[in-house]
Write a protein that binds this DNA or RNA. Structure first.
Lengths: 189, 189
DNA sequence: CAGGTTTCGTATCGATCGCTATGGATAAAA
DNA sequence: TTTTATCCATAGCGATCGATACGAAACCTG
């Protein structure tokens, strides 16, 4: 998973994977069928172990602004762990691929779209509760937030520290409109 | 250039390049020495022909907020041209590479860092003129803006339209603080 | 201990990568 | 017309890709 995270799908060779896992070629193919299913296993593992903060933030029983704050700050931490590759695997692993691997690229794109949809769902819920102004475009703002997270992934890959990503997240939060009461509190931290 | 833009450095094979240019192997090597220098030629060409909006926006004799607005809206257009690959070549072409191509990845990273530095310079100038509040962190805000542009690049690659990217840019602009007079005007458009 | 079966590491498969040597066609010089 | 030189497309170079065939070792069963 770390190798795919660092070098992407195509640039990670089976020789690297074999050396990292200490397996011989038949062992790796008995266990994972082929490279593509191995990558998909790494994908689901990444989703379960490294991206939990997102679902956690979006489903927490807190006001919408706080949920989004947790989402972005969670990304700041998850994308800049010292012992892990920088950024998000969903963004890095197959952004530009050869025509043969476009199925993989499409699958990662679907993951990103799903993340954006999850954000949009949370925003719609917040709008229904009254946390967000009536005239806010849920889809537009979800695209903004998903875009900011993707941008944080690039910045993390370029070496941005946790603190720098946190500042970026806080800055991005300033674009979030508030229905009155909770705007002043956010400028404190 | 379009092939590198679409498929990235490593996933673009010389066979694809030869077919696109209608050249035989010796012709391509006589003209461009090897794949790496060909890619660098494509890089400088991309920088000259597709990214002019950035320098233009940052050096225009307009208030800081307007400069940033032109920067982000310019990116929205440049990243979603119908007849061009989506997103920015500097972001897409070598985000995750094999160890052999890390020199290329580092070079693109340097390009991205240079863009962020250019934004920071413009912000510092704006701060000196009084367009921006005194307590604003120039580096932090530049990292935010560069991150938003990188995120727009990902969204464009995922199929976002010009209009969607424009909305994203406008949303990102809402995070820009103003020294009083020009804040009200921006919420109009 | 002998026989049959399963497991597993090595060696290698065909395909493709970036890149280059070679042979034949063409053009200029005598 | 003959000779020489230049150009350039085809064929193939070594290396590496993902994936597999084969022989040896190990193990459970009589």
């Amino acid at each position: 998973m770390h190798l795919f995270w660092e070098h992407g799908y195509e640039a990670t060779s089976l020789a690297m994977l074999r050396e990292a896992m200490g397996l011989t070629p038949p062992q790796i193919y008995n266990a994972f069928t082929d490279k593509e299913t191995l990558f998909r296993k790494a994908l689901t593992r990444y989703h379960q172990t490294e991206i939990g903060f997102a679902l956690e933030a979006l489903s927490a029983p807190v006001p919408t602004r706080e949920a989004i704050r947790r989402l972005l700050l969670g990304a700041a931490e998850a994308y800049s762990r010292p012992d892990k590759p920088g950024g998000c695997l969903f963004v890095s692993a197959a952004l530009a691929t050869s025509p043969q691997a476009q199925a993989i690229a499409d699958e990662l794109k679907a993951y990103r779209k799903a993340s954006e949809a999850a954000i949009a769902n949370r925003l719609a819920k917040g709008k229904a509760v009254g946390d967000l102004p009536e005239n806010l475009s849920v889809e537009g703002f979800a695209k903004y937030l998903a875009g900011v997270m993707n941008g944080m992934s690039i910045q993390a890959r370029d070496g941005a520290s946790v603190e720098e990503l946190r500042v970026l997240a806080q800055t991005a939060l300033a674009a979030l409109p508030a229905e009155g009461q909770n705007q002043a509190a956010s400028s404190k931290e």
